[in-house]
Nucleic acid binder design. Structure first.
Lengths: 200, 200
DNA sequence: AATGAAAGTTTCCCCTGTAAACATGGGCGT
DNA sequence: ACGCCCATGTTTACAGGGGAAACTTTCATT
């Protein structure tokens, strides 16, 4: 963002600077059509410089998505840790954090789940996504052990929970939860419905 | 797809031909990067011809998404109608139909919920999406009236149900429901969890 | 038959992704 | 200290896409 003008020929950490710029641009404009050249321009380097750090445009996109998953994992973990001890409360806190994350940076969230960020093409991205997913899984496992959640297959709980949260986030981004008369707290209401099925 | 070679100067229904071609290409290749020019080529017209029928590339994309919602509505309605009388069974049938639709044509499904298909930019698209959503809403309303579903706010049920189905569809497309050890029937299992919370 | 709008085509411009060739300069072996 | 290598930049070049503008062909209408 803020570079000294007398930047030396070698940037120092251009890779990081590029991802920072890209993330900032992604966050700044809803529905941004990503162009590598614009990222390079705003970072203050030539349009070919990024190719020294990313094989192609998609590799940068995948890196952005990976960072997104790491960030999401952090905010979810933080939210779940700081909330009360009840597993149900933790789940709601984590879900809220995820949905808030999506609403706060729709471009990044969309990217994370778009075809452009192909998880099969980059193990690091795949792992980051799985690790974030794992946060939910661990909560559900612990909740099952202490009897908070029903003892059905943990994977069923995880799939249901993750799908619910992700689905709500996508619908929220699309504005489909607000404009139409969907109660005052559609997210909370929907989560309660699911939790009634999950809780013992 | 199959045109007579001596196609007259005026195509007759180029608009339809373009959408057909585009839909076919979308279905044919997972993760296709959409280009108007390629659609025009495969349709056998000049690359500028589409502009006589669509203001720009995005208008065509929105039309494709609209058609997608109409189709989705049809398969869901069909699935729900042909299944048993139980509201719960109907819900599962509809959800399955939606997820199968997504798996059958991931490109189209992704497009329908991507930022490229901006529902705020086209009332017809918006209405089509809302109408498909309404299918679920109606089922839930009826199910509440006959006591199948709990008498919580209908909108809460609808948001929960729609989010769940959509989330599962997205995860399924991403392959996140199959590769990791998520039971044999993750979809059914997840829906059952939700339905346990929805049903009376 | 004349004509004007609708629906195609050609041509043009600018932008993007990406490859190749060239430039710079910091760190290493000697 | 010197020189050289290589990572990391830059410039240049090219193909392909989106979209505007101007031209052309039909068809329907009078």
């Amino acid at each position: 963002m803020s570079e000294t003008k007398d930047r030396p020929y070698h940037h120092g950490d251009l890779r990081r600077a590029l991802t920072d710029t890209a993330l900032a641009m992604l966050a700044a404009s809803r529905n941004w059509s990503f162009t590598l050249r614009e990222v390079a321009r705003r970072t203050g380097v030539s349009h070919a410089a990024p190719y020294k750090h990313f094989r192609d445009r998609e590799e940068l996109l995948r890196e952005l998505a990976r960072i997104g998953f790491v960030r999401l994992g952090r905010v979810m973990t933080a939210a779940m840790a700081s909330d009360g001890p009840s597993a149900r409360a933790k789940f709601i806190a984590g879900a809220r954090a995820c949905i808030d994350f999506a609403l706060d940076d729709p471009g990044l969230y969309r990217l994370m789940f778009s075809g452009d960020a192909d998880k099969a093409a980059d193990p690091r991205l795949h792992d980051a996504a799985m690790e974030t997913f794992g946060i939910f899984l661990h909560l559900l496992q612990k909740g099952q052990r202490d009897g908070s959640f029903r003892p059905v297959a943990t994977n069923a709980l995880a799939a249901a929970g993750w799908a619910q949260v992700h689905g709500l986030a996508m619908l929220a981004i699309d504005g489909q939860l607000l404009e139409e008369k969907v109660g005052t707290e559609p997210v909370r209401a929907a989560l309660d419905v699911l939790l009634d099925g999950m809780c013992a």
